[in-house]
């Protein structure tokens, strides 16, 4: 199973919003994945295949082994769909 983390500063609000839209996008594409939301400090020690987050927080996750994907507009399903298409590999 593909493991995806959505990450924000506190892991309470914005990462959950992103998780909802990422799950929607993955579901529409028929991609099975385990999506978890967390804060940026916990994320650095968690295993994942992909991390989806904002530009600001991506800078502190560059050492992570996961493929870090940046989304600027969390409410733009087109951007989220495109980010997944460009970065996810089968």
């Amino acid at each position: 199973m593909i493991k995806v983390l959505t990450v924000c500063g506190l892991g309470q609000g914005t990462s959950l919003i992103l998780k909802m839209n990422v799950e929607q996008a993955l579901g529409d594409k028929g991609i099975q994945a385990d999506v978890e939301h967390t804060d940026v400090s916990a994320a650095s020690s968690m295993q994942a295949d992909y991390i989806i987050t904002s530009n600001e927080l991506a800078e502190s996750l560059t050492d992570h082994s996961a493929n870090v994907i940046i989304v600027n507009n969390y409410f733009d399903m087109d951007e989220i769909n495109q980010a997944i298409e460009e970065n996810f590999t089968e």
């Binding site: 309470q12 609000g13 914005t14 904002s54 927080l57 507009n73 733009d76």
Partner: peptide, 17 residues
């Protein structure tokens, strides 16, 4: 943590724990 909670153009969702 900076303005990462500006989640989309013109939209901020400030919050805490």
């Amino acid at each position: 943590n900076g303005p990462y909670f500006v989640l989309a153009p013109h939209i901020a969702i400030p919050h805490a724990r």
